[in-house]
Amino acid sequence: MASSRPARALPTALGVSFLWLCAAIAWVLWATPADEALGIVQKIFYIHVGSAFAMLLCLVAASGAAAVDLLSPSPPVDAFGRACTEVGLLFALVVLTSGPLWARKSWGAWWTWEPRLTLTLLATLLAAAVLAVRAMAGSAGGRRIGNALAVLAGPTSYLIHIAVQKWGGTHPQVIQGGGIQSPAMRVAFWACVAGLLGVAFALVALRARTLRLADCLAALQLDRQAATLRQQRAAMAGATDGQWAVS
């Protein structure tokens, strides 16, 4: 069967990147020094930032894929966009749970209405709304409606970003400002980022394939049903013809 190679390759890629991530996490937990000022809670940083990268990439790709699918409908692009929305939502949940755990320790509050927190929360809500609409609207309508909303969500998120930047914030600017000083921390950090992005890409690919397969299967089942109905109708027509012939 032609489809057996990628069918096995994707779960393998997912497993490898997941193992890589676990190894990087183990390294972080045992081999990196604790932060002088923030203490051991700073170890959240290693997964928090990488998850935020993965979330941002997935949601931007989802918006782009939705635009492409609206312009020239293509089922693979649509499946890719849906998978990106789902995985983006998954990593947004990781960001939104790991962030407050860190913030409680270092800012003294689980949540503040700080620019990046607000943007992440609203992007999460938008992704969840798009998925909810797709789930509720059925296959054909949900695709068009969900894509339209996903396209609108892209520039809106950018405007939300600008709006909340004007509040001013307390978020640490590690990557933009200077980077990480300790070499051990830096290597572990980028290893974690690579692991998280690898897991995200593998999940997107796997999920897109699954969605595509489900669509094809549904179409196939419809075909089968139509064929069955046609056969039944033909049989009934034959039977009635026979009756007419007898009478």
Binding site: I25, I44, I47, E86, T97, L101, V199
Partner: peptide, 27 residues
Amino acid sequence: GGALAGIAYLLLLGLVGGYAAWTAKKV
């Protein structure tokens, strides 16, 4: 702080693992 970080790591693994398991079930 260690407990907070530990919870964060467990949540990450749980969420990603749960989603992967859900996808596998769909397959």
